[in-house]
């Protein structure tokens, strides 16, 4: 049995989740990573994607649009700009988020970054299959 770590997911408006997990999968800006107990202290930015926390009770998954994660040996804190439980993510919501990502991308000076944002969002949508 692997050790556990404290997983917190907070959005600007409220704390969405606080639970003890064995591992947390995070969509980092430079690639996915999985945090387990004893992980090197890391701070990474997020790309749009799905955060999964695996615990004894099963897997809890949230769709996040961006933000950052702070990983410590004993805890993981994900600060998401916007986070939605995967069960609540439906096609209409995804369309909204996608439109938002597109308008944000249009405002960005860096076209590559904008394209990446939209593509990440599309990938997240495909992964959810809604």
């Amino acid at each position: 049995m692997a050790g556990t770590l404290q997983f917190d997911l907070v959005s600007p408006e409220r704390r969405l989740a606080a639970l003890t997990a064995t591992e947390v999968q995070i969509p980092g800006a430079e690639g996915d990573l999985t945090a387990m107990e004893g992980h090197v202290p890391t701070i990474t930015t997020l790309r749009p994607g799905i955060v999964r926390a695996v615990s004894a009770q099963g897997v809890t998954a949230y769709l996040v649009t961006g933000g950052f994660a702070e990983i410590n040996p004993q805890s993981v804190t994900v600060l998401a700009e916007r986070a939605v439980p995967v069960a609540e993510a439906n096609a209409a919501l995804m369309d909204d988020l996608l439109a938002e990502a597109r308008s944000q991308a249009a405002a960005l000076a860096d076209r590559d970054a904008g394209e990446k944002l939209v593509n990440d969002m599309l990938a997240a949508r495909a992964a959810l299959a809604v």
Partner: peptide, 20 residues
């Protein structure tokens, strides 16, 4: 005080975080 690994670099994260 903890020393963190930053991914991507410190400056990139800071540039991303400051507007937020």
């Amino acid at each position: 005080t903890a020393l963190y690994d930053y991914e991507p670099g410190e400056e990139a994260i800071l540039a991303d975080l400051l507007p937020r």
